[in-house]
Write a protein that binds this DNA or RNA. Structure first.
Lengths: 236, 236
DNA sequence: CGGTATCCCCGTCGATACTG
DNA sequence: CAGTATCGACGGGGATACCG
């Protein structure tokens, strides 16, 4: 006899009628907010979502997605895409507020927070392809401090979309950014500026004149980069 | 030799630089959002906070509070009160948005979500004492479906504050509310209205004429009671 | 591509008792 | 009142392999 083991014991966790508690029972599960972030960012396919949460096991992602469906926050279409319901879309301002808060009040990133795959994935997703010149534009990223396997990246950008290569695709390169993983991460997050990084020598840009002009419009920063930071408090 | 076991391993959980992830590492811990709800509601003392999260063990509450202090969200004063820092106060709109979302999209309460202690504690905390007549006003609550130990409650309200009794304090009673635990919980949450409950007979109010007039101003509902609910979707 | 199945470890949490 | 100490259990979730 096979006993099906229960999958969702999360229906009641806190034993509280407070709506904050009822929302938390769904949302405070590990990885849940990040899965929602991915869905809100527009990812729909399982492996597409996974690329946004690569350190999550597929088993667990599957479980969380089913939980979202059960809760009426997401839906699974017949062609196996995950889309947000009205309830799910209403979580957008909450996730954004969380990101803004994290930007303001969680200041320092630890080295374990840095991840080249994730950074390149995020950057690729936000490339402003409408601003590109016709044809193909290739951007080469070098994380000089990263191990060889994750040191070199190429963004192949066209008006039809952007692709990531972790090997040289062989096309002509419009611009090369040579920097550290932390530097580009902090630029992406808006913690530091492009010029600040270049002036300190930790970022070197080699680009054709056209790319030099176009780069700031092609590459966009995290949606939280513009979040105003709290003024530092002086003690003296 | 005693090895002090590490208490906070939560510094890096997700291995992501995304500020949503960094915020989630703090906030998605079990009970954390509810502890913050209590702090934002104004509770400061350990056992005062505990009354808002009675099913949380003191060990765990202590751990979470220290985590909040470590993260710069709360501070512990020399006289052992917990207060929110500017970072903590900025979480207020997030918690409120969570409550509003939970009100809109987590419709049905299970029986395990109902808790008479918690309900009376919440009601007591929101009594509009400035609207009270001089002297003492006593309100008697009866949860007719609850076990005897949690069936009878008295709210002793004065302009200096409100106290909860789970035994008859012996004072003159201005009003008696005889209802079920679920009914008063749903009224408190704004799921149903006072009159609706009275008309269906599941709530009976016996009050002096003065109390009958004053009651609606003395007793306030949850801050989420007024949240507009999504319109039900018809299927036909 | 889009997941499941299985195993097992270890961290988290609950329970209880106790202390300054 | 404001927590700490200790212990044990459990179940969440990581790792890995596999399937339609």
């Amino acid at each position: 006899m096979v006993v099906a083991r229960p999958i969702f014991r999360r229906v009641t966790v806190y034993g509280q009628f407070c709506p904050v508690a009822k929302a938390a029972e769904l949302l405070d599960q590990r990885w849940m907010l990040l899965v929602l972030r991915e869905l809100l960012a527009g990812s729909q396919h399982f492996n597409e979502i996974r690329r946004g949460v690569p350190k999550m096991s597929p088993t667990l992602l599957s479980q969380r997605l089913r939980e979202l469906v059960r809760a009426g926050v997401a839906e699974r279409t017949p062609d196996k895409r995950y889309t947000l319901t009205p309830a799910g879309k209403e979580l957008a301002p909450i996730i954004e507020a969380l990101g803004a808060w994290g930007t303001r009040w969680v200041p320092a990133l630890g080295d374990p927070d840095l991840d080249p795959h994730l950074l390149v994935w995020d950057i690729h997703r936000s490339v402003n392809i409408t601003a590109l010149p016709p044809g193909r534009t290739v951007l080469h990223l070098i994380f000089r401090d990263a191990p060889p396997a994750t040191r070199y990246w190429w963004l192949v950008m066209t008006r039809d979309g952007t692709e990531i290569c972790d090997f040289d695709p062989g096309y002509e390169i419009a611009a090369t950014l040579d920097t550290t993983l932390r530097t580009l991460t902090e630029i992406w997050r808006g913690d530091i500026g492009w010029t600040q990084a270049q002036n300190s020598g930790v970022l070197q840009v080699a680009a054709t004149p056209a790319a030099h002009r176009g780069l700031p419009t092609w590459l966009q920063l995290s949606k939280f980069a513009g979040t105003p930071r709290p003024l530092p408090v002086h003690s003296g």
